[in-house]
Write a protein that binds this DNA or RNA. Sequence first.
DNA 1: AATAATCATTTGTCCTACAAAGAATGTTTT
DNA 2: AAAACATTCTTTGTAGGACAAATGATTATT
Lengths: 232, 232
Amino acid sequence: MRNLKRRDKLYIQAYREIRGYIINNGLKAGDLLPTEQSLCQTLGVSRNVLREAIKSMELMGMVQACPGRGTVVKEFNLDFIFQNVLFFAIGEKEDVTIHEMFGIRKMLELAYMSQAFQALSMEDIQIMRECANTIRAKWQRKEFFYEDDRAFHLALFRPLNNGVLLSLLEAIWAVDDGFQLEQKQPHLDNTIAKHEAIVDALEKHDFPAFARAMDAHFSSGKYLSSGSYEEY
Amino acid sequence: MRNLKRRDKLYIQAYREIRGYIINNGLKAGDLLPTEQSLCQTLGVSRNVLREAIKSMELMGMVQACPGRGTVVKEFNLDFIFQNVLFFAIGEKEDVTIHEMFGIRKMLELAYMSQAFQALSMEDIQIMRECANTIRAKWQRKEFFYEDDRAFHLALFRPLNNGVLLSLLEAIWAVDDGFQLEQKQPHLDNTIAKHEAIVDALEKHDFPAFARAMDAHFSSGKYLSSGSYEEY
DNA sequence: AATAATCATTTGTCCTACAAAGAATGTTTT
DNA sequence: AAAACATTCTTTGTAGGACAAATGATTATT
């Protein structure tokens, strides 16, 4: 019986090798990759194949190639998601995708909220309070506050020191963000009240209230549950 | 004052052109792109440059190139994004990251298990039973059964029809897989019993037992909780 | 008519060559 | 000696040609 899974195309293998090289050697932003010639020899592929791999990485923002200088590793950020991939998500099916991603974010935040509650320090809570204040201020000036909303949630989970969780939440946020910018934001006032309810509960160190506020935050404004947080 | 932003590299221009072609012409999954030769002429670039653009798209899962056939547009999915997000999240602290990813998988599976329980059909449960049988058989022959383990869990959540969740679970599985293959698998026998406990509960349509089995599945063998599932 | 062989098309891989941009070095000028 | 300029070297950018491999269509064979 022969091998079922044909080997991947060379440029994909090269891509994985280079990605692995960056990770295994702990290359950071600004560090130089070996030259194309050197990588060709090391990996045993032609310069074309190698470039197909590297150009893919460059397009995604992982590295940047400069003639005469070399190829430097860039800070990995998720911009490429909406710049290079997200636009692909047009059509009706992608509404479903966004909805699913939002659902996963909800599940993750609810699953980790008790850990977060324990890990949060006074400083973290203060940061969240400032975010909430900024959000309210921007809302009154009719400005967008996605960045502050994002900062609010990231501050909530940063103390967990869980890099994977943060990466995931950021990735989902980036996608949500890119889409919500286009469509009108519903129930803005509710969103603001919910954020403040969360901080209030944290400042009082009241876990049940915190859990209720988190739960409410993820339920649509239209289905506003019985007003346990209306007083805020 | 001269132009601040030098013109982009050709492969990036080509990438944008092709992306625009797909969108403007409303190409859907399965549709063919023009041939490389044709695109080279249309865009006025060399085949190298064109391929750097197309291979980037292929790596991100937007299209798939087949020799003798052409390059077809693919269904949009997030597999690539998640895999890279997670892979880059690994960084230097492998052990911690793997542990975090396993934790996220646990949280997600537990969060969605009740939905899964309701969505599962008899056929799905039968597939899981077969996976469990295969796992036991391979275990007795001292073979690896990661693929079957993966199939087991994916079968559990496929009926949810949640593409994002599946992508995410698969991505985590892929990373776990790559790392766990090297290290020895602990508590194998427990793993097998736990899988079978899950299927048993599903076949009896007993949600409490199912939830208990799922919970047990994610607790390490060393911390085996009081034997509610020892009888299996 | 079914099967096998052939051919045409398309992508996969490698190669060479030169252009362009940046860095390092050496030279000239002040 | 220091600064400005010119040269050279290294590295990536772009182009084109050549052939292999895979697929699909066509033709020949049984």
